[in-house]
Amino acid sequence: MDAHAWCTKAQVVVSPNFGARPAGMAVDLLVIHNISLPLAEFGGDYILDLFQNRLDCDAHPSFASLRGVQVSSHFLIRRDGQLFQFVAGSARAWHAGLSQFQGRQACNDFSIGIELEGCDTCAFTDAQYLSLTRLSVCLLRHFPVQHIVGHEDIAPGRKTDPGPYFDWQRFQQSLPGWMVMDATD
């Protein structure tokens, strides 16, 4: 990580969808998501385009609801493990939406968002778990992270990702000494 928390191992694709974090706000939460565009289809540039406000919403019928949406994440991990970064870790990406964690609202203010290319109906790949572990270790060294949760944990009833096929136990075992999925602590 450099001084602004750009990961030197990631391919940078800058998103315009970010803002400053509140002054003095510590980044102490990692949020794991899943994303695919169209749903359950992988590869291509649709996710990159979405995070850059360049998605052709006429390219697929399911994209109609994304017209005018401005979102981003700090990171995306493709099915083959390739890592992209859209927003500096020192900045606030727009990944969490309406959210709260342990009584704190607006999780974008104090979290890092990591998108896994996937969906709620399929398993993630070995390459994704390896890349996620490496990225998480780096982020845990750079930020005072206290919790690692799924999007579903900070927006219950509204979000379901990373979904039932994300192997929390496997991820937990790859980070000795860290407790993941601890939104209720």
Score class of each variant (00 low, 15 high):
Asn108Phe: 07
Gln102Gly: 09
Gly157Met: 05
Leu116Pro: 02
Ser73Trp: 08
Cys138Leu: 15
Asp45Leu: 06
Val180Thr: 14
Val71Ile: 13
Phe166Leu: 02
Arg21Phe: 03
Asp109Cys: 08
Val13Tyr: 08
Ser131Leu: 06
Gln146Ser: 13
Asp109Gln: 12
Ala3Pro: 01
Gly150Arg: 07
Met1Glu: 06
Leu175Phe: 05
Arg158Lys: 08
Thr184Tyr: 14
Phe75Gln: 00
Leu139Asp: 02
Ala106Ser: 13
Asp153Pro: 05
Asn34Gly: 01
Ala10Ser: 11
Leu116Arg: 04
His60Ser: 03
Val13Met: 10
Ala106Val: 09
Ser99Met: 06
Ser73Phe: 07
Pro38Ile: 05
Gln169Tyr: 10
Ile35Ala: 04
Arg67Leu: 03
His74Thr: 06
Ser15Val: 03
Asp49Arg: 14
Lys9Asn: 11
Ile77Leu: 05
Ala106Glu: 14
Val13Ser: 12
Asp109Lys: 07
Pro164Cys: 08
Val31Cys: 04
Leu140His: 01
Val13Thr: 11
Gly24Arg: 13
Gly103Asn: 09
Glu152His: 14
Leu50Met: 08
His147Ser: 15
Asp49His: 12
Arg54Gly: 01
Asp58Glu: 14
Ala183Glu: 13
Pro176Asn: 10
Gly68Trp: 06
Gln128Ala: 00
Cys138Glu: 15
Pro22Arg: 09
Gly157His: 05
Asn108Val: 06
Phe166Tyr: 06
Ala91Cys: 13
Arg141Asn: 15
Thr184Arg: 14
Asn108Leu: 07
Pro162Asp: 07
Ala3Tyr: 04
Asp182Asn: 15
Thr184Asn: 13
Ala93Trp: 05
Ala40Lys: 02
Ile148Ala: 08
Met25Tyr: 02
Gly89Gln: 00
Ala5Glu: 00
Cys107Ala: 13
Gln173Lys: 13
Val31Asn: 01
Ala155Tyr: 09
Phe42Trp: 12
Arg79Ala: 11
Arg79Met: 12
Thr184Gly: 06
Leu39Cys: 07
Arg54Met: 03
Pro162Glu: 08
Ile32Tyr: 04
Leu50Thr: 05
Leu50Glu: 10
Asp56Ala: 09
Leu98Tyr: 08
Met25Trp: 04
Gln100Lys: 10
Phe18Lys: 15
Lys9Glu: 14
Leu48Gly: 04
Ser136Met: 04
Thr184Val: 11
Phe171Arg: 05
Leu76Cys: 02
Asp185Ile: 11
Gly81Phe: 09
Gln102Pro: 02
Phe143Cys: 03
Glu152Asp: 14
Val87Leu: 04
Gln146Val: 07
His147Phe: 15
Ser90Lys: 14
Gln173Ser: 13
Gly44Leu: 00
Lys159Asp: 12
Val87Ser: 03
